[in-house]
C-alpha cells in the first residue's frame, strides 16, 4: 500500500491544554478512514493539523514522504491536494455556488475561467447541484451547501479530502443526501478521512476505523472488527452509549 499521509508523534497543545498527546497514523492511498470519538477528544484538531490550519506543537506530518512543515514545502499547493470539508460548510458568501467552485481553481491552480467553469459544472453535477449554480450560499439549505462545498473541494482535484463532521450541522432529513454523495466518492478511489458520528457510514463505507480518546488513538481496526469485537474498554463504552441513542 502506498502511504499518502503519515503522522509521527504528533502533539498539539493550546496553552497548557494538551489536545493531541501522541498521534501516530498512516493514511494509504484509496483508503476511507473514519475517525470517531467523543466530543473534545481532538478529532477536529488532528484534521486541522493535517491541513495546517493549526500548527502542530511537535511531531511530523509527511505528505508523500515530505515533511509539510519544512521551509521549502509549498503549503498552498499541498492544501489544494489535501482539501478540507467543514462542519459549517464555509462556502464563500460573496460568490454563487458556481463561482465558489470556479474561483479557487483560477486562483490556486491558475486555470482560465472557461476550463475552470467547465470542470466546476461537472463536479456540481456529481453532487447533484448543477441546477443551483447561480444560487448564493444563503439561498441554499444545509445539505445543498455541504454538497457544493464537496464539489468545491473536488474542483481542486485533490489526492485526499478531509471531512470534519460533514453532516453534524444538518437537519436529519438532509444527512442522507450528503452521505450519498460521500458514498459515491468513496467508490471513485479518492482517499478520504472522515470525522463522523454516522456509525452506519463508518461501518459500511470506510476501510478502517479510528477511535480517538483524550488526544490519543485508542483503537484502530477494520470496521467489521471494530463494531463487532472492540478491543478496548473505552471503545465498548463509547459504542454502547451510541447504540442506546
Amino acid at each position: 500500500m502506498e502511504k499518502i499521509i503519515e503522522l509521527i508523534n504528533l502533539k498539539k497543545s493550546f496553552g497548557d491544554h494538551e489536545v493531541l498527546r501522541d498521534i501516530n497514523l498512516t493514511l494509504n492511498r484509496g483508503e476511507i478512514v473514519s475517525v470517531i470519538g467523543s466530543s473534545g477528544s481532538g478529532k477536529s484538531t488532528m484534521l486541522r493539523c493535517i491541513n495546517l490550519l493549526e500548527e502542530p506543537t511537535s511531531g511530523e506530518i509527511l505528505f508523500n514522504g515530505e515533511n509539510i512543515q519544512s521551509k521549502s514545502f509549498n503549503l498552498c499547493s499541498y492544501r489544494a491536494k489535501v482539501c478540507m470539508v467543514f462542519q459549517q460548510f464555509n462556502l464563500f458568501n460573496n460568490m454563487t455556488a458556481l463561482e465558489n467552485c470556479v474561483r479557487p481553481q483560477m486562483v490556486v491552480l491558475k486555470k482560465d475561467r472557461q476550463s475552470a467553469t467547465q470542470f466546476a459544472i461537472e463536479q456540481l453535477e456529481k453532487v447533484g447541484m448543477s441546477a443551483f449554480i447561480n444560487a448564493k450560499p444563503n439561498q441554499l439549505s444545509g445539505g445543498q451547501k455541504q454538497r457544493v462545498a464537496i464539489a468545491r473541494a473536488l474542483c481542486m482535484q485533490p489526492e485526499v479530502i478531509l471531512f470534519d463532521e460533514p453532516t453534524s450541522a444538518l437537519d436529519p432529513e438532509m444527512v442522507g443526501e450528503v452521505l450519498e454523495v460521500m458514498k459515491s466518492l468513496a467508490k471513485t478511489g479518492l482517499t478520504m478521512m472522515v470525522v463522523t458520528h454516522e456509525m452506519a457510514f463508518a461501518r459500511d463505507i470506510s476501510t478502517r476505523v479510528i477511535f480517538m480518546d483524550e488526544g490519543l488513538i485508542a483503537e484502530e481496526n477494520t470496521p467489521q472488527e471494530f463494531f463487532t469485537n472492540p478491543q478496548k474498554e473505552r471503545t465498548k463504552e463509547f459504542l454502547a452509549r451510541f447504540l442506546e441513542n
Partner: peptide
C-alpha cells in the same frame, strides 16, 4: 470560517 475555507483550498 471564510478565511479557513479559503486557506483549506490553498
Amino acid at each position: 470560517g471564510q478565511f479557513e475555507g479559503a486557506h483549506s483550498l490553498g
